[in-house]
Design a protein around this nucleic acid. Structure first.
Length: 218
DNA sequence: TGCCAGGCCCTCTTTAGGGCCTT
């Protein structure tokens, strides 16, 4: 069966857990074989106030969060929802930081499958002609249908999922010869996101050779 | 008073600095 990738997005009270910021909403979209096969979204309540700027940006208010389920309960649910999935986020260092911090608060057992790939890093390498690599700009530039209000978790996660699908298709078409029939897996994306731009084709070819060698060995 | 993140990329670089991207 094709691997399942979980595309996640956090809305938060600030830029970094190290500064005391907390998640206010999380969404996870499951992609399998390029199709959306599941989605999860929930507001999450913590004891941290939403600053006015963030409330205007996301539309998530302190009043909304007072009625939301506790962050710990939400993290346990979304951890179970994404169990066994490789992860993707737009600017993954940001979401990964909140993911780890909120998981730790909720005493969720770390899932070794939860390795992150980043659509910012990938789009910088694969879409160098884009005006910039903000999620909204890339969505407009690639004519990705609007998925709802930007800066809400599910809308941004769905947009990122469509962007990821476009990036996978780009790799599949541009490096069809190097791929030699192999699919564009999360593992390959993780290698491409840290490859130099001039080494992308060689990176794909090496990856395909390793897969072929492993297949031969089994 | 002004500043406060962090990981990555690019270049006028690597003994550094500035910009991008996320809320």
């Amino acid at each position: 069966m094709a691997e399942t990738i979980a595309v996640i997005d956090f809305e938060t009270t600030g830029m970094s857990p190290s500064q005391g910021a907390r998640g206010t909403e999380i969404a996870a979209v499951l992609l399998r074989g390029g199709e959306v096969v599941g989605q999860y979204q929930s507001l999450m309540r913590s004891d941290v106030m939403v600053p006015p700027f963030i409330e205007r940006l996301t539309g998530i208010s302190n009043a909304m969060l007072r009625k939301a389920p506790p962050a710990e309960e939400v993290m346990r649910e979304v951890s179970e929802f994404t169990r066994g999935c490789a992860m993707v986020a737009h600017n993954a260092s940001f979401d990964r930081g909140f993911w780890l911090a909120e998981q730790a608060r909720a005493a969720c057992a770390p899932d070794p499958a939860h390795r992150f790939a980043c659509t910012v890093l990938l789009s910088r390498r694969l879409l160098p002609d884009a005006p910039n690599h903000r999620l909204g700009t890339l969505a407009s530039w690639l004519a990705i249908d609007k998925q709802g209000r930007a800066h809400r978790a599910l809308a941004d996660a769905l947009t990122t999922a469509h962007l990821l699908r476009h990036l996978q298709q780009t790799v599949a078409e541009r490096y069809a010869a190097e791929l030699a029939g192999h699919t564009v897996s999360h593992a390959l994306l993780a290698e491409l996101q840290i490859a130099t731009k001039t080494a992308l084709a060689r990176c794909v070819a090496r990856h395909a050779q390793r897969l072929a060698a492993n297949t031969d060995a089994t």
